[in-house]
């Protein structure tokens, strides 16, 4: 029996949301609806999380952020898209800066519509995500020594649009205080890197 569904930890990220669904997600943790009695904790660290609650739709700025959070979560993981903006773009679907709902960048297990989604609906969505998590855990237990096969790993990378195969370059030597290293910024970057980077956040693949 899988204990992972007994006390799932969630990580919450807001990608271009108006905050309505975010405060309802936080309201689930507070004494009125109180999901902490089920052992659900809102953690700030993706590496500790089981369920990714995402609100708001995707725009060009936060594509890489959402992907990085998703990649850092260990398997098995589930994603719940909270609110109609995360499901499909909502009332902002025709805006010039909106790409669409969350499923344009990462696979989603549960969609919770609403504007703003009510805490009861959010809790219902999390419970269904637990079901999905349970199935994934059972599928993982069939192969006890590896989480994914090599072919599945390549397929995962393909689906997320990342280059496959090549491992990250290992650091050749220790970096000591006082060394001059090139600072990489976090976030998306315009294609020509000759632009002055010190005043904007350029992109970097952040080594986790």
């Amino acid at each position: 029996m899988s204990y992972i569904t007994k006390s799932p930890w969630i990580i919450h990220y807001d990608g271009s949301s108006c905050n309505g669904c975010d405060i309802e997600v936080l309201a689930c943790l507070t004494p009125m609806y109180d999901v902490e009695r089920f052992g659900i904790i809102n953690t700030g660290n993706p590496k500790h999380a089981d369920i990714f609650l995402i609100t708001g739709s995707i725009n060009e700025q936060n594509v890489s952020v959402v992907k990085q959070i998703y990649e850092q979560m260990p398997e098995p993981k589930a994603v719940a898209a909270i609110g109609i903006c995360a499901t499909s773009g909502g009332v902002f679907k025709d805006c010039y800066n909106i790409m669409g709902g969350v499923d344009t960048v990462i696979p989603v297990d549960v969609y919770v519509p609403g504007c703003a989604a009510r805490p009861e609906a959010i809790i219902d969505g999390v419970v269904r995500a637990l079901g999905a998590l349970d199935e994934k855990k059972k599928a993982m237990e069939k192969r006890p020594h590896e989480t994914t096969t090599a072919a599945e790993a390549v397929a995962n990378l393909d689906r997320m649009g990342l280059p496959d195969g090549a491992p990250p370059e290992p650091l050749e030597e220790l970096v000591l205080p006082g060394d001059d290293i090139e600072v990489k910024y976090f976030g998306t970057q315009p294609d020509d890197e000759s632009a002055d980077d010190s005043k904007n956040s350029g992109s970097g693949k952040e080594e986790a």
């Binding site: 725009n59 060009e60 700025q61 010039y96 800066n97 790409m99 976030g187 998306t188 315009p190 632009a195 002055d196 005043k199 904007n200």
Partner: peptide, 11 residues
């Protein structure tokens, strides 16, 4: 002056 990168937008 952010040089056009204050809002990074698609279009």
């Amino acid at each position: 002056d952010y040089g056009g990168h204050f809002f990074k937008i698609a279009s």
